[in-house]
Write a protein that binds this DNA or RNA. Structure first.
Length: 264
DNA sequence: GCTTGGACCTGATTGC
DNA sequence: TGCAATCAGGTCCAAG
């Protein structure tokens, strides 16, 4: 989409998780996408109109590239998706469809000049792959926190962009119990955790993401990282490190998978 | 101020 | 076979 102009924008319903901003399609039609970026799990398209188009996939959102572009994309659009809610037509003939059965995703517009004050970005912690993120940062962010470290890592103000799967995997790699209170994570363990977070993210990206049921790349291809999960969705299986049993528990409403023997 | 749990919504899976 | 209950990758907000 970068460098292309939106020749047609179609919002097929009034809302996703939230209502679309006023005049959503009209404000986008004709705009040129100067740059595509990302902050945590939010996609950000900088437009030449002065707005930033912010997009979040929620849990089941998916972008599919179709149409006939003069450039490199020639994917078959495939059968029409039942839950395709937004369609972007590009000036080179490309077609970007957004489908989202559960509608936990959303799209928003915000002035580009003020993007740092976008509510979701304001209190957001560092990107895990950035220099700002480290064991020392984690230890400082965890200081005094009486919430389990599992919940703390899901808090986007501590680290940006980690979800349930990768938090479970990173805690296993670092040998830290998800039940441990965040404030009690030692300095060496915080270092190990920061390193594990980076590893998990890097490997998952390398593997093309995790396709459990909904995730697919824009050409429809699936990720492979789910085959490398050490604990996630492996309740009852043997821990690959110590042979102990992988357990499941529910923390703040989310499933946590961990090894009860070697995660302390 | 911090923490937890419910709400949002649909579809797949499981168990009776 | 059919139905109900449960669960799912995220985030926000009210209540405690």
């Amino acid at each position: 989409m970068e460098g292309r102009r939106l020749s047609r924008v179609e919002a097929r319903r009034a809302d996703l998780r939230f209502p679309f901003p006023e005049n959503f399609a009209a404000r986008l039609t004709g705009a040129r996408i100067e740059r595509m970026g990302r902050r945590a799990k939010y996609l950000a398209a900088d437009l030449d109109t002065g707005d930033c188009l912010i997009m979040h996939l929620g849990m089941t959102g998916r972008f599919t590239i179709g149409g006939r572009q003069q450039g490199k994309f020639h994917h078959d659009a495939g059968p029409p998706e039942r839950h395709e809610h937004v369609v972007f037509g590009l000036d080179d003939g490309g077609r970007i469809g957004y489908s989202d059965p559960r509608r936990f995703g959303f799209m928003d517009l915000w002035p580009l000049a003020d993007i740092e004050n976008y509510p979701a970005f304001r209190a957001m912690g560092p990107e895990p792959m950035s220099n700002r993120f480290s064991g020392a940062w984690l230890r400082e962010a965890f200081r005094g926190r009486r919430t389990p470290v599992k919940a703390a890592l899901l808090d986007q103000s501590m680290v940006a962009g980690l979800g349930n799967i990768y938090v479970c995997e990173a805690l296993w790699r670092a040998g830290i119990s998800p039940k441990r209170l965040a404030g009690s994570v030692s300095a060496p363990k915080a270092e190990a955790l920061a390193a594990a977070v980076r590893e998990v993210i890097a490997e998952a990206i390398e593997a093309g993401g995790s396709s459990i049921s909904d995730f697919a790349a824009t050409d429809g291809s699936l990720g492979y990282f789910q085959h490398r999960f050490s604990v996630y969705d492996r309740e009852g299986e043997a821990c690959g490190r110590c042979g102990g049993g992988v357990k499941r528990l529910v923390q703040s409403g989310r499933s946590t998978f961990y090894c009860g023997a070697c995660q302390r």
